[in-house]
Each structure stands twice: as structure tokens, then as C-alpha cells.
Amino acid sequence: MAHTLLKNRRRTDYRFSLEYRTRWIDNDMYDHMNNSVYYFLFDSIVNSYLIQHCSLHPPTSDSIGLVVHSHCDYFAPVGFPAVVDLCLRVNKLGKSSVTYEIGVFEKGVEEVKAVGNFIHVFVEREGRRPAVEGMAENLKKGLGAIVVSEQAKL
């Protein structure tokens, strides 16, 4: 059932988007975007949001986000040349962790091509353990702005 819900995602189900133009090198021998490129794109939209809307400056921040889980459901291929909209939302915001959902949509096509999940645990740079007080307030506030309501979650 969750797979069907994900397949029905639309751009309006997300709170932030980023455009990406596919490159020739993104294709694999099967003439579609390679699976590893999707994960590169997930990382790109998440970190773009953190930098732009959560005041995160990775080289100097006291805390860093470690990826502890990632997953992708593929529904239809994307290839070169194409422009895709990467769409982001937060499905769960915890004390030190955040669960993101990323929808991949081809420009001009309503149906979602892929939906990924990505979990960060924010830890202190030194020691790599979650801070006692959890993630920094700027992260909580910025990520809270793209949390979906309980009704919209899977």
C-alpha cells in the first residue's frame, strides 16, 4: 500500500524544490539515469535546503548530519536530456534525527519518477554523538517549515 501512495505523489505534496538538468554522464548502459545518480541528487537537495534555510555551514558547523538510512522507489525512468524537479519534504522530525522524502519529477510530466527517503542524525562534529539537547535550534526551525502534516504522511 505504501508503494501505491508514493507512486501517487505530486509536486504539491512537497515544500521545497530544486531543478536539475540531467547530463549525458548520468545515463547508464540501459539508457536511463543510473541509480547512483538519484542518491547524488537526494544529497544535493537536502544539503541545499540545509544551507539555504537552516543556516548550516558544513565546514564550520559544530554539528554534522550523518546519513543512517537511504532508500528509493523507482516508478519510471529519467534519461538524458531531461530537466527534473527534485522536491523535498520532512516526514519526521525528531530530537536529533530527520526523515526526508524526495520526489523526482520530470519537467512537464505530472507523474513522479522516483521517491527517495533519506535519514540524517545530527551529531557533534567531535565524538560523532548526538548532542544532549538534540539538533541546533536553527536546524529544528528550518526543517520544521517543511514538515508535512500527519494526514499527508504514509
Rank of each mutant, 00 (worst) to 15 (best):
M1A: 07
A2T: 14
H3K: 09
T4Y: 14
L5G: 15
L6K: 07
N8H: 06
R10W: 13
R10T: 14
T12W: 12
T12Q: 12
D13L: 15
D13N: 05
R15S: 14
F16N: 07
F16G: 00
S17V: 06
Y20Q: 11
R21I: 06
T22D: 01
R23V: 10
R23I: 05
I25R: 13
I25M: 09
D26E: 04
D26L: 03
N27W: 02
N27Q: 08
N27Y: 02
D28N: 08
D31L: 12
H32C: 01
H32M: 14
M33F: 06
N34H: 13
N34A: 05
N35L: 07
S36K: 10
V37I: 11
V37M: 01
Y38F: 04
F40E: 04
F40N: 12
L41R: 00
I45C: 00
I45R: 00
V46K: 04
N47V: 13
S48C: 12
Y49H: 15
Y49M: 11
L50F: 10
Q52D: 06
Q52A: 12
Q52H: 04
C54Y: 01
L56K: 06
P58I: 03
P58N: 08
P59S: 14
P59H: 15
T60F: 15
S61K: 04
S61F: 05
G65N: 02
G65L: 04
V68Q: 02
V68C: 07
H69Y: 04
H69K: 13
H71P: 12
C72T: 12
A76D: 12
P77L: 01
P77E: 02
P77Y: 02
F80R: 01
F80T: 14
A82D: 10
A82C: 12
V83E: 08
V83T: 15
V84P: 00
D85C: 12
N91S: 11
L93Q: 14
S96C: 05
S96D: 13
S97T: 03
S97V: 13
S97D: 12
T99Q: 08
E101M: 02
I102F: 00
G103E: 00
V104S: 00
V104N: 00
K107D: 08
G108D: 08
E110W: 10
E110F: 13
E110T: 10
V112K: 00
K113S: 11
K113C: 06
A114S: 10
A114R: 02
G116H: 01
G116L: 00
N117Y: 09
N117W: 11
H120G: 01
V121A: 10
V121S: 03
V123C: 01
V123D: 03
E126Q: 06
R128V: 07
V132M: 06
V132Q: 15
V132D: 13
E133F: 07
G134I: 09
G134N: 04
G134S: 03
M135W: 06
M135V: 11
M135P: 02
A136G: 07
E137T: 09
N138Q: 15
L139Q: 08
K140D: 04
G142D: 04
L143C: 15
A145W: 12
I146P: 00
I146L: 01
V147I: 03
V148H: 13
Q151W: 14
A152L: 10
L154W: 15
